[in-house]
Write a protein that binds this DNA or RNA. Structure first.
Lengths: 225, 225
DNA sequence: ACCTGAACACCGTTCAAGT
DNA sequence: ACCTGAACACCGTTCAAGT
């Protein structure tokens, strides 16, 4: 009976007490904005506004926009699932890349962001290491593996970015589609014949297929001369 | 003797007579800026300044920045060399992609621009058609070919963009390099062992190798189920 | 050390007014 | 029809001044 009940008036405040700034809090706010407003909302001023402060305050924690973006990317890369130890190396590599792709796809604008930044945070390192391990397990030569990591990550990021461009930008795919449908069999016979296939099935099938293509290519390749 | 000699004073003016605006002239100006100042200089206001006018004038010819960028891209794609009719299809496809890569590489910031726009101008169509022709010549299935076009173009663009990021941004590669050199053999054994290879030889060898990888993968693949 | 308002030098886009 | 200055609503980054 000694306990004083919490004063509900405090927790009823429409705005919670302003939490202190930190790299973590800023990244969190940026992530929330990315989800709600897409890449366009990801400005210093806008992120600062959500934290009830001015843009200048963010410069205490990040030297510039690039650095904040890199931190944001590494933060979401923590969600990438590294495959278990057992099983075929190809399947596991594929799983890893699909997980990576899924993380980029899950948040609007994230893939575009990943394309324009060079991530090299701790979670990127984890992922690179895992890909290297799987490739060397598969007997891929050292140089091929080293170059392959870069290639695989870049490639999956590009696929995600392109799909995002197609799905979010109404302009994008529609314009390509209308251009393709206007193509004549005389001028561009192959385009004309395959124009249906070129736009079709922009979903998981297509990205899985694309990942298969590059893994096939990599494992077929001997180290560069 | 009736002819009046041209008044040289006119042609001696330090600034040539202001040429009339046109889509062509605007794209030309944008291209010149891209070469001199990189992607950062490619703003409506800056392009307009080079043409001795205000940004508003450009909106007579282009609905927005995206449209101007697309026109700029298609303009440079006219330089892509389509391979001759004779010869092995793989070699010809490789030549085409290397030419495409070279065009993107030749101008600072162009590859980044290509990644963020969806080009669908006449020169893109020419290139797509040619790739389709080569792939079907190589016996690649219809659906694989249709998806492959997208994939190949995207892939080569990404490679060019990444190389540009590494070469122009001093920050970029240097940061990755310093992160990699700080990696310990205990935490990340594979990264540690291959860290030298991962940064090495970011030149034509690497992009040609990357192009080989994907062509191998594509030609090994049967059409998706 | 951390935070901030104000300032500087920029953006894309629109629009009323001119030719 | 084409062109334009001015305005609107934004940017990133810096810096002197506050705590």
């Amino acid at each position: 009976m000694n306990q004083v009940p919490p004063r509900t008036i405090v927790s009823r405040r429409s705005r919670p007490a302003k939490s202190p700034l930190s790299r973590e809090a800023i990244v969190e706010a940026a992530l929330a904005i990315l989800e709600q407003q897409g890449e366009g909302g990801l400005s210093m001023r806008n992120i600062a506004k959500r934290l009830d402060t001015g843009a200048a305050s963010l410069y205490v924690y990040f030297a510039n926009t690039d650095e904040l973006h890199a931190a944001l990317l590494d933060h979401v890369f923590s969600e990438v699932v590294l495959p278990a130890q057992q099983g075929n190396w190809r399947d596991r590599l594929k799983d890893l890349l699909i997980s990576y792709h899924g993380v980029l796809e899950a948040r609007r604008g994230l893939a575009q962001l990943a394309l324009s930044s060079i991530a090299s945070g701790p979670n990127s390192l984890r992922i690179w290491e895992c890909i290297l391990r799987l490739l060397s397990e598969g007997g891929v030569g050292a140089t091929t593996a080293a170059w392959g990591v870069d290639l695989l990550v870049l490639y999956v990021t590009s696929i995600a970015a392109e799909q995002a461009l197609h799905t979010t930008d109404d302009r994008g795919l529609t314009r390509v589609a209308s251009v393709l449908s206007a193509v004549t069999a005389d001028e561009f016979p192959h385009l004309h014949r395959l124009r249906g296939d070129m736009i079709s099935d922009d979903g998981p099938n297509r990205s899985q297929w694309a990942i298969d293509v590059i893994i096939d290519g990599l494992s077929a390749r001997s180290p560069p001369a």
